[in-house]
Nucleic acid binder design. Structure first.
Lengths: 338, 338
DNA sequence: CTGAAAGCGCTTACAG
DNA sequence: CTGAAAGCGCTTACAG
């Protein structure tokens, strides 16, 4: 109810100077055992907790890390956050999360907002090519680690998944089954995952010109998935296999396939990226490119801790996994729409 | 690169005292137009931004709100957060999120951690009956609003959904179809939603003793859903309708039904709580009790703002919606296991 | 209307 | 090893 306990209250109770209390608490070496004991007893008795704002003001550090993500409801983030937080907590840092809804301006706003409250950032930018974001990052006076984002012009710390390798494996699997027209419906081309996949597919079949790849990058939305699938199914050179770039896109693809009454894999093969809870009830089981978020969270947090301690710049590339399922089969004999 | 711009730099540039700069920035009435203009020009020219820590230390307020939730990956929260944040931002507050993973001790830790960094809290407790949590709340020296949590002994601000009304509507719908044995598989009984539903079901059929209700509260997990369904399907008085208390529980229920090769609604009717993205691909469409999270987020934020401005205690009760679908049908003729 | 001074609660050189 | 003093960057009575 009354004014919270301050360092002076502790000092009075222990009959020492405030500076001594500070030394004891911060683990300064020069403290006599007797004084340390008296101070600790007083801290305990009064339930003293140092004022973080005052500490931050004086020290210039807050022992807090800011995490900015485009979509906290993505289950991938949940696990990432959990492990990142554990790693940071173990090192004495708290984790604060901000949600930017995929809006670059919101990234920037949160950066400004959190800048003075944190010692560093974990950043999953909404758009790694956005001019405002890039310049905000350049001016940012706090260390940060990019999460599955890559700004190649700049030498930033980042943790990346190897999306390129994953998509190559999946596409090669389809090609080996006999598919010659494969379509990739992917999301926002302004973030690393989409770009990495796009580039990898581009170069994947340079030595197999008989395999045709069509790519449709736009947004991680059911709408994009549905419209693009509609378009593909109506086209002259209808693909025999579709790769959906995210769960949201997959939802759209499935809507279109259902409406066209097409069967998987008899009429068309299907691969999707990332697992989702309800996926198991969809028939047939869908081949999935998946990734380990716990590992990612730990790695990212550790990288930021390294950065805070001044260790040299590093990038981490984490593997993704392709899990073939019965949604992929050899293509049916050619059936052209009349 | 160098030391950030401080209020003294602005004061020097504008040739006024720091106190005058402070008055201009905080909108103090006693400032001459000429000085105001000079100061504003200097602020602009130097790109000055007040140090939040210093302001917080001096004023005792941080213009920040803390949100603690058990599971940020729950899509319901995503929308809630978005609207709560908009409302708070409009009032000049920032929103910081912490994830407690459904662990009461983590609630308490985050409360302690954030206490000095925020002016108030939005709290979705992991366990509203936990002794540690309740006492931490009692000692908390910051205002807060409970999100779909109810600690009836205490007079706290809270926003609640009317889960009781929703479940009554759904159960009555099933009873009117002819169901006489209805099972509710629900989650954590230590939070308001489960408790409200449980109580409502208890009293719902007092005037219709022919309708039997069985309730199984435990945890919002697929495992609980699956095991309980297994048990129910093997029991003497197998229910003719099941209500799943969450998407996670539904997943378990569906796993069990699939394994038992039971058809919905021919063999058993099904109702679930909350919508999920992939739900639309499950056959048949499942009757759902749903709720508006945007409205909830706005209401909760507004309530906290009210509280911060000292307005009297209020609780808000928001409606939920029952959407019947073809997963509900009259029960088949009794088939007892031999 | 404006400025000089004190102080929010800490930490950290600086003496001793 | 310990204490007194200065100061982190602000705001707010207090004079004038």
């Amino acid at each position: 109810m009354s004014r919270p306990i301050g360092i002076r209250d502790v000092a009075n109770k222990a009959a020492v100077a405030a500076s001594s209390v500070s030394r004891v608490i911060s683990g300064h070496p020069n403290v006599s055992p007797e004084m340390k004991e008296r101070v600790l007893a007083a801290v305990e008795a009064l339930g003293y907790e140092p004022n973080i704002l005052a500490q931050g003001l004086r020290r210039g550090s807050t022992q807090t890390i800011g995490l900015v993500v485009p979509d906290i409801s993505n289950p991938l983030f949940s696990e990432l956050v959990f492990h990142a937080e554990n790693t940071l907590n173990a090192a004495g840092y708290a984790l604060l999360i901000a949600n930017s809804q995929g809006v670059p301006d919101s990234d920037i706003t949160h950066l400004k907002l959190l800048r003075q409250r944190v010692d560093g950032f974990l950043l999953s930018l909404s758009d790694e090519t956005d001019k405002g974001t890039v310049s905000a990052l350049k001016q940012l006076d706090k260390p940060f680690v990019l999460l599955d984002r890559d700004i190649s012009k700049a030498k930033y710390f980042s943790v990346l998944w190897d999306h390129g390798a994953g998509i190559k494996t999946a596409a090669a699997y389809l090609a080996d089954l006999g598919h010659r027209r494969i379509a990739m419906i992917d999301g926002n081309p302004r973030v690393h995952p989409t770009r990495a996949r796009s580039q990898a597919l581009q170069s994947a079949f340079e030595d197999r010109p008989e395999v045709h790849i069509a790519k449709y990058d736009a947004s991680f939305s059911p709408d994009h998935g549905e419209r693009t699938t509609d378009f593909l199914l109506g086209s002259e050179s209808r693909p025999t296999a579709i790769i959906a770039g995210s769960v949201q896109i997959l939802i759209g693809v499935l809507r279109s396939l259902r409406r066209h009454k097409l069967r998987v894999p008899e009429d068309i093969s299907l691969v999707t990226i990332d697992h989702a809870p309800m996926l198991e009830f969809i028939e047939p089981p869908i081949a999935t490119i998946d990734r380990d978020c716990g590992d990612f969270g730990r790695t990212a947090a550790q990288l930021l801790l390294d950065r805070l301690e001044g260790r040299p710049m590093r990038k981490h590339l984490l593997p993704v996994n392709f899990d073939p399922k019965s949604s992929c089969a050899p293509p049916a004999d050619e059936v052209r729409p009349t």
